[in-house]
C-alpha cells in the first residue's frame, strides 16, 4: 500500500506551538515561510550551500532548507522572529545594526541565528577548524577574529559585509562575557 505522503505535525516555534498539515516534501524553511508567514528565514540556495535559512533547532543552528518539516516534529525551533525580547533587540542584533554588519540584509537573519549559536558553541568549549590544538588539554580557544571568521563561514554574504559581521560578533561576544562576569561578581 502506498504510504501517506502528508502528516499533521506540531512544531514549537519561538516558544509557541503550531499544528499544521505538511506535505512530507515540505522543508522546515518552506513551512515557516509559506504556511506560517514567518518569512524572516530566507531561502538563498535551498541546497545547504549558503546558510541564509539558518535557524536554531533545540538551540543548535541548522539549515532549515535541508530539514524536512515532518522530521522537525517535537523539536524547538527558534527563528529570527524569536530572537528579540519584545522591542528590545538581542545584543547580537544590536551589534549587527550598530556596526552595519550587512548590506542587502537577505543573509542577515541567518547570520544572526548563526552568531547566536557561535557564542553558545564557543562557551561550550567546542573547537573549530581554526583552532590550532583541538586536544582538550589545550583548553578552549579564545574567540579571536580568525575563530569568528571560520565559525561564521557557513553563512555566505555576497555583498561582502564580512568585516563588519566579524566585528559585530566580536562585540556581542564581549557583551556576553561582560554580562557573565557581572553575573558572577
Amino acid at each position: 500500500m502506498a504510504p501517506s505522503t502528508s502528516s499533521v505535525i506540531t512544531l514549537t516555534i519561538n516558544g509557541e506551538k503550531h499544528t499544521l498539515p505538511v506535505d512530507h516534501r515540505t522543508t522546515l524553511l518552506d513551512a515557516l515561510r509559506e504556511q506560517l508567514d514567518l518569512t524572516g528565514t530566507k531561502k538563498g540556495c535551498d541546497q545547504g550551500q549558503c546558510g541564509a535559512c539558518t535557524v536554531l533547532l533545540d538551540g543548535r543552528r541548522a539549515v532549515s532548507c535541508l530539514q524536512l518539516a515532518v522530521a522537525a516534529e517535537g523539536r524547538e525551533v527558534t527563528t529570527i522572529e524569536g530572537v528579540a525580547e519584545g522591542d528590545e533587540l538581542h545584543p547580537v542584533q544590536q551589534a549587527f545594526l550598530d556596526l552595519d554588519g550587512y548590506q542587502c540584509g537577505y543573509c542577515t537573519p541567518g547570520q544572526i541565528c548563526s552568531a547566536l549559536a557561535v557564542l553558545e558553541e564557543h562557551a561550550a568549549g567546542w573547537p573549530s577548524a581554526a583552532t590550532a590544538d583541538v586536544r582538550p588539554e589545550a583548553g578552549p580557544p579564545p574567540l579571536s577574529p580568525d575563530e569568528i571568521r571560520e565559525r561564521m563561514s557557513g553563512n555566505l554574504c555576497r555583498c561582502g559585509a564580512y568585516v563588519s559581521i566579524v566585528q559585530a560578533v566580536a562585540r556581542a561576544a564581549e557583551a556576553r562575557t561582560a554580562g557573565t562576569e557581572e553575573a558572577l561578581a
Binding site: G48, G51, A62, V63, L66, S114, A117, T131, G154
Partner: peptide, 16 residues
C-alpha cells in the same frame, strides 16, 4: 578525527 570533522561543511551542517 576531530580536525577532519571540523574541516567539513559548516557549523550548521555539522549539527545536522
Amino acid at each position: 578525527l576531530a580536525q577532519a570533522v571540523l574541516a567539513g561543511a559548516s557549523g550548521q551542517l555539522r549539527n545536522m
